[in-house]
């Protein structure tokens, strides 16, 4: 990565300059970037395929376990060190994505191509982030499709932004704003790393205080708000939206929802609030003890199963294994409320 010394102060005109401008990155490096594997196949030639192998400069997700992953940019001379040993990046180059690779001690990890979902699991948390259930629902409910122009505030750690970018690609654009300059800078670095810079522009602006920039008036297909006082921004959001455009506000507290909904009523319709959660399941093969005899009079509560042998009518006495599933004991109980609305059609 090129260290961006002397960060350009983000002024509004920057919003319309492609962020991969040669001014900001040496052309050679920019050219190289086009060849390396990033998150989206904006160019169809770069999509995932049997023949696509890992090369120097690619972003890979190193998978140890479903709850332990890490994003790494492959660099020939580097190594990855973890509890399984030392992995040389040079061993990875030329291997297909999805390969199992080994350390000096024989430990292994998998190398995966990055996706928005995997990125959400590995990104560095600079703020609280949105997870897959909320993200998926937001994208679908805001009716975001390729070509849309989407406004977002705040950017936070860019978890939702990454999925928004995927949804508007290849022709749309996401303009995302955060009032925290350093955070915006880190997000910008992340979007370059994931190859989304041509789809996302990060602006530094206090949207709650100043509203969205006037340049976007009547241009947005969708607006997403994740702000402490979203009701302050709703009038500005209404101004930015196209006719029948959609808005979503994410708030952890019901009081925020209450105030937002009251303000929404003046220029929005179809105002609906949802909560979406996921329950995950554990699957395992259990050896279930069989009960001997024909079970007459047996009234126990032990897990029991009986099965007829195929060769006769005898009752099997050895344990029977079967695949069983149950919900995981712990789950996220609350993330936030999602309030959706649609700009009223004026006659």
């Amino acid at each position: 990565m090129v260290a961006r010394q002397g960060k350009i102060k983000q002024t509004l005109w920057v919003l319309f300059v492609p962020s991969l401008s040669p001014l900001r990155k040496p052309f050679l490096l920019w050219h190289k970037d086009l060849k390396t594997h990033k998150m989206l196949a904006i160019d169809p030639a770069k999509k995932l395929s049997f023949n696509r192998s890992i090369s120097n400069g690619d972003l890979v997700i190193v998978y140890e376990r479903h709850d332990n992953m890490k994003a790494i940019t492959v660099s020939e001379a580097s190594v990855l060190q973890n509890r399984f040993g030392v992995f040389k990046h040079s061993d990875w180059i030329g291997k297909p994505f999805g390969s199992k690779v080994f350390s000096n001690k024989g430990g292994f990890v998998y190398l995966l191509a990055p996706t928005a979902e995997l990125w959400t699991l590995v990104l560095s948390h600079r703020t609280q982030i949105l997870y897959i259930a909320d993200i998926s629902f937001v994208v679908m409910y805001l009716e975001i499709v390729p070509g849309c122009l989407v406004l977002e505030s705040g950017t936070g750690s860019g978890s939702l932004t990454t999925s928004l970018a995927r949804a508007v690609a290849p022709t749309g654009h996401v303009y995302t704003f955060d009032f925290h300059e350093q955070r915006a800078g880190s997000a910008r670095d992340d979007f370059e790393r994931t190859g989304l810079s041509s789809l996302v522009t990060v602006g530094v602006r206090d949207i709650q205080g100043e509203g969205f920039p006037d340049e976007f008036t009547g241009m947005a297909d969708a607006v997403f708000l994740d702000l402490p006082q979203p009701w302050l921004t709703i009038p500005s959001a209404a101004k930015m939206l196209k006719q029948d455009g959609t808005l979503c506000s994410f708030s952890p507290c019901i009081e925020q929802v209450q105030r937002s909904s009251e303000v929404l009523r003046t220029s929005f319709t179809d105002i609906r609030t949802f909560e979406v959660l996921l329950r995950t399941y554990e699957v395992r093969e259990e050896k279930l003890q069989n009960i001997q005899g024909n079970g007459d009079g047996f009234n126990g509560s032990l897990p029991c199963k009986r099965k007829q042998c195929s060769d006769g009518g005898n009752v099997i006495t050895s344990p029977i294994s079967s695949v069983v599933a149950r919900p995981c004991g712990e789950a996220r109980g609350h993330t936030g409320y999602l309030t959706f609305a649609r700009l009223k059609c004026l006659l």
């Binding site: 949802f274 909560e275 996921l278 399941y281 699957v283």
Partner: peptide
């Protein structure tokens, strides 16, 4: 992973 989504709407 097997997941089951849960969706609840609110009257506000």
């Amino acid at each position: 992973q097997i997941t089951e989504p849960w969706l609840r709407e609110y009257q506000v």
